[in-house]
Write a protein that binds this DNA or RNA. Sequence first.
DNA 1: ATATGTGCAAATCCTTTGCATAGAA
DNA 2: TTCTATGCAAAGGATTTGCACATAT
Lengths: 137, 137
Amino acid sequence: MAADEECIRARLEAHGVAPTAQRLKIAALVLEPAQHVTAEQVLARLSARGERVSKATVYNTLNLFAARGLLRELCVDPARAWFDSNTAPHFHMQHVDTGELVDVASDAVAVTGPSQLPEGTEAAGIEIVIRVRRKAP
Amino acid sequence: MAADEECIRARLEAHGVAPTAQRLKIAALVLEPAQHVTAEQVLARLSARGERVSKATVYNTLNLFAARGLLRELCVDPARAWFDSNTAPHFHMQHVDTGELVDVASDAVAVTGPSQLPEGTEAAGIEIVIRVRRKAP
DNA sequence: ATATGTGCAAATCCTTTGCATAGAA
DNA sequence: TTCTATGCAAAGGATTTGCACATAT
């Protein structure tokens, strides 16, 4: 546990994030294993563990982690923000019936982007969401 | 104008949408030419034209159109819902600095999906957002 | 008549913000 | 001290909802 905490602390510092008590609690919960979380889930899991972190700090922290590259904010749900602790290149598959979200390895999908981007721009990322539904009987 | 309205009315009916006065106004504004709109934009353009449609009806109508396949709801902006009146297969490119959203023809991007979808599911769609930023100088 | 659609305002949900307090350097 | 982070409650913005009224079949 101490080793884990040291490791997490190091990751925060490597990303320029001061390792406060609250941030360490959230990081321990969210950064591993790789997973998809919402702010509300983080809040609920913290209080389930008896760790008291304010809602404002949860939002601040998730946004900070995303800005510093510890998390990736996903655009898959119009109703709320999802954060992905797998920051390696990959895509997502979502069940439209359940909202369930699973990773798709980037090498499972071959993408050949447009041959040219607009003048004066460079690629900043690509997001792919494959939506599936229960197969009609 | 009468021809247009007849055409739009026919499209609504073909999608199982009863062509009420408000829905025709919104459809005339939104369905062509192909474009990306938010509820707020529709509301603003309606009042700019002196057409009075309530906010609730605008939201109801856009959601109804999306449910019936007259519009596609996009997942590109965590802050508000965008609707795309181009329902043909295509993808999007978004400038992260400005939020500007442009279409990418589906044949400009080659995608080879995962060879197998999960048991009992079928494809419901795929959304691709290529994000670009101003090139570093 | 009976179904459905509309409008208004209030309610709801997610997220951010203002500000006073707590904590670390 | 001085700077930053935290917590709380309130504010904010987008969207939905409840319900009375209007409309169309």
